[in-house]
Amino acid sequence: MMDAVTRQAVTRSGAPRTNTAGMPPDPFPRRPRRRLRTFLVVTSATLVAVAAVTVASGLDEFDQRQPRIEIPEGIPPGPGAPLPPIDVDAPGRAATQLAHWAAPLSDSLAISPIALEAYGYAAAVMAQSRPECGIGWTTLAGIAAVESKHGTHGGARVGDDGLVSPPIRGIALDGSPGVAEIPDTDGGAMDGDATHDRAMGPLQFIPETWKRWGVDANGDGVADPDSIDDAALTAARYLCARGGDLTTEDGWRTALMAYNLSGEYLLDVRDRAAAYSVGVRR
C-alpha cells in the first residue's frame, strides 16, 4: 500500500404559538364571517398550490432547455481539457505557464488555479518523460479531491507558491481498528510523529514512500510533500510506474490499487476524475 488515506467525515424551530387560553368566549359568534374566512383560506391555499405548480412547470421547462451533462462511468476517466504546450524545464515554478488554462477551469470545477496548474504540469511532464503512460490531470485531481479536498482539508489552503498551509497530516498509523500499523520510519522529522508514520500533504504520502519517490517539481531545490506541485508530480511518477499504460482499464486500475488498496477508493477517485473530465465539479 502506498499511503494511508485519512478521510474524516465532516458533518455539517418553529415559532411558538400564541397562547389564548383564558380568553372569554365571544358572546356574539359571527358565523357568516367565519365562513368567509374559511373560504378565503381555502381560496388562498388553492392559489398558492396553483402558483407552485406553475413555478415547478417553469423550472422543468428551464431544465429541459438546459440539458444535464452526463458523467462517463467507464475506466479510465477521460483526460479532460487538453493542456497547451509548455516548457516543462523552464526555471522556477514552471506550472505557472498553465495559468490561462487553469483560470476558467477553476471556476467551473471549484478547484484553485494553483492546484490545477500543479495537476496539469505533472501530466505534461509525464507526457514528455513517459509518453506511454498517458496519465491525465483529471486522475491526479480525482486523487487529490479524495485525499485532501485539493489541499484544503481541515482549513488548509494552497498558497501562490503551491505550499499547503497549515500542513495536512493524517492520523497515526498505529494499527487501531480500520487503520494500518506502520511504525515510524523517519524519526518524526517529516510527519511530526516519532512513534508511528502519518500520511502527509495534499496527496497523503507516508514518509517511507516519499523518501523513495519524492521529487522537486517547482524548482526550489526541495522535494516537499506539502507542496502541491511536488506532491502531484510524485503521485504521477508513482502511478505510471505501478500501472504502466494508464489509458487502459487494467493499467489504471492497477495504478490506483497500488496507491490505495481499496475498490471503494478507486471508484471514488474515478467518479471525481470523470466529472472533472466533462467540466463538472464534485
Rank of each mutant, 00 (worst) to 15 (best):
G188S: 09
P131S: 00
T185P: 00
D226N: 12
A194P: 01
H196G: 09
W137G: 02
E208F: 03
T185G: 03
P225A: 05
D184Y: 05
G188H: 08
P207N: 06
D216A: 03
R130P: 00
E181T: 14
A217C: 04
A141F: 06
R130M: 13
G142I: 13
A127P: 02
A144H: 09
S176Y: 03
D193Q: 12
A235C: 12
G155K: 10
P225H: 06
T152F: 12
S227T: 06
S165Q: 14
P177H: 05
A141C: 09
A156D: 09
P167V: 15
I168R: 10
G221S: 04
R212C: 13
D186H: 04
A199T: 13
G178Q: 06
C133F: 06
T139P: 00
I171Q: 01
A156Q: 11
A231C: 01
A232G: 01
L163T: 09
A231H: 00
T138W: 06
I182R: 11
I228T: 08
G214H: 02
K149M: 15
D186A: 04
D160W: 07
A180G: 07
L163P: 00
R157V: 15
W210C: 12
A235H: 09
A235S: 12
E181C: 11
R237G: 01
V158W: 10
D186M: 08
L203P: 00
A232R: 06
K211C: 09
A232C: 06
A189D: 14
E208Y: 05
L163Y: 02
I206P: 00
G142Y: 09
H150L: 14
P183G: 10
H150V: 15
D184G: 04
A156M: 12
V222L: 13
D197P: 01
D186E: 08
A236G: 03
G151S: 11
V179W: 05
G151E: 14
G162W: 08
W137Y: 04
L163V: 11
V179D: 02
D186N: 08
S148K: 07
G134K: 01
L203Q: 05
A180F: 14
G175W: 06
A180S: 13
G151W: 11
G142S: 11
G219D: 10
Q204I: 08
